[in-house]
């Protein structure tokens, strides 16, 4: 080690966060980004509908929001955030031409996605066990439809990540060609992004 190096520093490859290059388009396939924007538009309308429907049912929304499991929501938020971080590290790894490390990060992300699905399924089982359904009241109609719509996106995101991880495992991506990894990562980040708004809106704000 060079004597002038600080103990707190060491030579490691450049991550995506410090790249100097400036690009005109986001990482991944541009067509997928159009799809992502369409998905975000739908979720945005859903969120606005929740907020304005709540205007006429404030007591009902506050009462039934209190029945939700916020600890489970915390675990799920942390699981999605962690999976997004893992996916981002996978993208950094393939940009550094390290396919094996990329695959490990991707499978770790898929594992965190599985944690989300298990926790959410347990929550749904609890609600359905209490006889709660879409027609129970307006709050549960929004809660169940919003979260289940997002749940389906988590499943789709995981299917995409599994396909990307399998291809990466076969050496299908490299430093120069990894659009598939970036596309899968962008979709997964979108799923996380939606949950970052959904979590406070449905579980916390009152």
């Amino acid at each position: 080690m060079n004597g002038s190096d600080s103990i707190a520093t060491r030579a490691i490859p450049e991550p995506v966060a410090t790249r100097d290059e400036v690009l005109r388009y986001p990482p991944g396939d541009l067509a997928l980004w159009i799809f992502i924007l369409a998905e975000l538009l739908v979720f945005g309308v859903f969120f606005a509908a929740y907020a304005f429907t709540r205007l006429n049912h404030v007591e009902l929304f506050n009462t039934y929001q209190a029945t939700l499991n916020r600890d489970a929501a915390l675990i799920n938020t942390l699981a999605l955030l962690t999976s997004s971080y893992f996916v981002m590290r996978g993208v950094v790894a393939i940009r550094e031409n390290d396919s094996r490390l990329c695959v490990r990060w991707l499978w770790a992300a898929i594992g965190m996605g599985a944690v989300f699905l298990v926790v959410k399924t347990v929550e749904y089982a609890h609600h359905f066990g209490e006889g709660i359904s879409l027609s129970t009241n307006t709050f549960y109609m929004f809660y169940l439809s919003l979260t289940f719509f997002h749940f389906m996106h988590v499943i789709l995101g995981m299917v995409i990540l599994v396909a990307v991880a399998l291809k990466a495992g076969r050496g299908g991506y490299s430093r120069t060609e990894h659009t598939g990894v970036e596309s899968g990562a962008s979709y997964w980040h979108m799923v996380d992004l939606v949950w970052l708004i959904l979590f406070p809106l449905v579980y916390v704000m009152r």
Partner: peptide
């Protein structure tokens, strides 16, 4: 809500990599 929007912006910038993009995107 403000915290959630800030978190979303951080995710877009640092995880999605939009901080390296110029223009509309």
């Amino acid at each position: 809500l403000g915290i959630a929007l800030f978190k979303g912006h951080l995710l877009a910038d640092w995880f999605m990599g939009l901080r390296f993009i110029t223009g509309w995107w």
